[in-house]
């Protein structure tokens, strides 16, 4: 199974608002790709369309060459694409371990329909992932008792439980303290080194530019630039789209180069 994710000409309107307009992008297999753009540029909508939460008005989504447009969220997950949410979502009244086991694919060792959730293999793997994200000491605590940053880690860990080929992260560093941001970045790099592909929406430029191999810039629902971070960070179109207001405001009193 390869993990190339591609969209072709995705358009989506909510009422009169065009969230996405002929949006085409490619996430190369084995890459960490960043998706940036101002608020309201359509990043989350694109995530929702890719992962089966919304249907596009037109256009198509391909995962590993297979057209998955309009497939249900649960089917998309089964095909090897996991995601996290902008507003971190966990199961607060399940323990961390149980949170992990929701996503675990049923392993073959287990018995009938009413066998205990998670065989020993699933449980061992769940523990390893909790260890990997550094929250295993709370394995039997209810997830609702975790701090915000720990919830981010748990959300990431649960998505990894079923070994997805590609993971879509919606603002993994949002509202997280700097040292934890470093941890999250390190974990993403580790996983990527082992073959997991990532598509990451993030506003923290330092995080994106330091982590991603490729960056795609979205503005008004369209891709305005794509390329390696060092080029993107100096691309005038990007600066205009992303930091436009701030840059425009400075020179305008002078009226020099407007």
């Amino acid at each position: 199974m390869t993990a190339e994710l591609r969209t072709e000409g995705i358009s989506k309107a909510f009422g009169g608002v065009h969230a996405l307009d002929d949006c085409s992008l490619t996430v190369a297999e084995g890459s960490i790709t960043g998706l940036i753009g101002p608020n309201g540029s359509g990043k989350t909508t694109l995530f929702n369309i890719m992962t089966g939460y919304e249907r596009p008005d037109s256009g198509a989504v391909y995962l590993a060459g297979q057209n998955i447009t309009g497939a249900s969220a649960q089917k998309v997950f089964g095909l090897g694409m996991g995601r996290t949410f902008q507003l971190t979502r966990i199961f607060p009244r399940l323990t961390l371990l149980e949170n992990m086991l929701v996503a675990a694919k049923p392993s073959r060792e287990r018995g009938g329909l009413l066998a205990r959730a998670g065989g020993t293999v699933d449980r061992r793997r769940a523990r390893e992932l909790l260890e990997f994200t550094g929250i295993d000491q709370y394995a039997n605590a209810l997830a609702g008792t975790l701090s915000y940053g720990q919830r981010k880690l748990l959300e990431l860990a649960t998505v990894l439980a079923a070994d997805p080929a590609i993971v879509l992260l919606d603002e993994p560093a949002g509202g997280v303290n700097p040292s934890l941001i470093q941890t999250i970045a390190a974990r993403i790099r580790d996983l990527n080194a082992r073959g997991t592909t990532f598509l990451i929406v993030e506003h923290n430029m330092e995080f994106v530019m330091g982590l991603c191999h490729q960056v795609t810039v979205l503005d008004y629902g369209t891709v305005v630039a794509a390329g390696p971070p060092e080029i993107i960070s100096t691309d005038p179109r990007v600066l205009d789209a992303y930091l436009g207001a701030a840059l425009d405001d400075e020179p305008s009193p002078d009226g020099a180069d407007a």
Binding site: Q74, R93, E98, L113, V159
Partner: peptide, 19 residues
Amino acid sequence: FGLHLRAIRDDEDRARSLG
């Protein structure tokens, strides 16, 4: 089965994203 039921109770949309 029961774990999936309780996951639905806590957050149905999230549960979908986990298969």
